[in-house]
């Protein structure tokens, strides 16, 4: 009797091991395309960027001379990189909070139960369908010194026209306005989805007790929406760090480098000046910034988030 159960036990562990192996093999087969692509186009190049950041390179991007941390020292001392960091931080501050407040306002409006709300939802989300290049070209004309609608409006009420894209103080604001407009569609759609997921019953008791609209907004809507707000903040923040197209079309980083955001700076360093080493050092800097921001956000942001 004893040996029978022993045999049974042995063969069943063998079957389990065999099953485990089969699971493993089929899982790897399913994951293989992703793993290969991530390795070739994400993990390998990230490592290569780190590697290149310690070298001087030639025009073909071949690492020639090992220089250790000199590329990092160089960029951290260079005035143009300081300007780029400052512009990027300012740009994030201009675009992220404003963009979220506007999108939240639109989402609250479009979530009201009125006839034809669907039409307005379509309009608000439409900017998501307008590409970076197209948006930037349209806004380039809106900011046009003489023919653009902005200066036409200003002069028609007796003001003096503004050099939106040519003045160092205004250029970054102009790029930020363009970016906020471009992001409205996406943020709006996500926030509206979040609003529609809030349980109706929560509002009923508030209505019975006669709570005002703003009281309900503060006490019910915003807390229940906080996971969505958290998600939208993270995404728009990361997007802001990655801005390129608007800068390329609107200002090319100028005037006097006031809109030379970090990705544009990397692009110029690598593909205009062919300094792949210092460009890679900047890329690693960008990677670390985004990494830190994401970790901080998850660490501190998540605590304040209210999950249903």
């Amino acid at each position: 009797m004893k040996s029978a159960t022993e045999i049974q036990g042995k063969s069943s562990t063998r079957i389990v091991t065999k099953w485990k192996f089969m699971y493993w093999r089929s899982a790897i087969l399913y994951l293989l395309p992703s793993i290969i692509l991530f390795s070739v186009f994400l993990f390998y190049p990230l490592g290569k960027t780190l590697y290149l950041s310690f070298f001087l390179t030639d025009q073909q991007g071949i690492a020639n001379v090992f220089v250790g941390f000199e590329n990092y020292q160089y960029i951290l001392q260079a005035e143009s990189f300081h300007k780029s960091i400052k512009a990027t931080i300012l740009f994030v501050l201009y675009t992220v909070p404003t963009g979220i407040v506007i999108s939240l306002f639109l989402a609250l409006l479009a979530n009201e139960k009125v006839k034809g709300a669907g039409f307005f939802r379509t309009i608000y989300s439409s900017t998501m369908g307008v590409s970076v290049a197209a948006s930037a070209v349209v806004w380039l004309f809106i900011f046009h010194p003489s023919m653009g609608i902005l200066n036409q409006l200003i002069t028609s009420i007796g003001g003096t026209s503004i050099d939106w894209l040519l003045h160092p103080d205004w250029a970054l604001v102009s790029v930020a306005v363009t970016t906020i407009w471009m992001n409205i569609g996406f943020s709006f759609l996500i926030l509206l989805g979040g609003l529609q997921n809030i349980d109706e019953h929560l509002y009923e008791s508030a209505k019975i007790s006669g709570a005002s609209y703003f009281y309900q907004l503060r006490r019910i809507t915003i807390p229940m929406l906080s996971p969505t707000l958290f998600f939208v903040t993270t995404v728009t923040l990361i997007n802001a760090f990655q801005t390129f197209g608007q800068v390329d079309i609107l200002t090319q980083g100028g005037p006097s480098e006031s809109t030379n955001l970090i990705v544009y700076s990397i692009y110029r360093e690598a593909f205009v000046n062919y300094q792949f080493g210092t460009a890679s050092a900047q890329s690693i800097f960008l990677f670390l910034c985004i990494l830190i921001v994401t970790i901080l956000q998850f660490k501190f942001g998540e605590r304040k988030v209210h999950y249903q």
């Binding site: 390998y44 190049p45 990230l46 960027t49 990655q242 990705v263 960008l286 990677f287």
Partner: peptide, 11 residues
Amino acid sequence: MIPWEATMIPN
């Protein structure tokens, strides 16, 4: 969390 731009040069 890896920004695509950080890998663009080697890519």
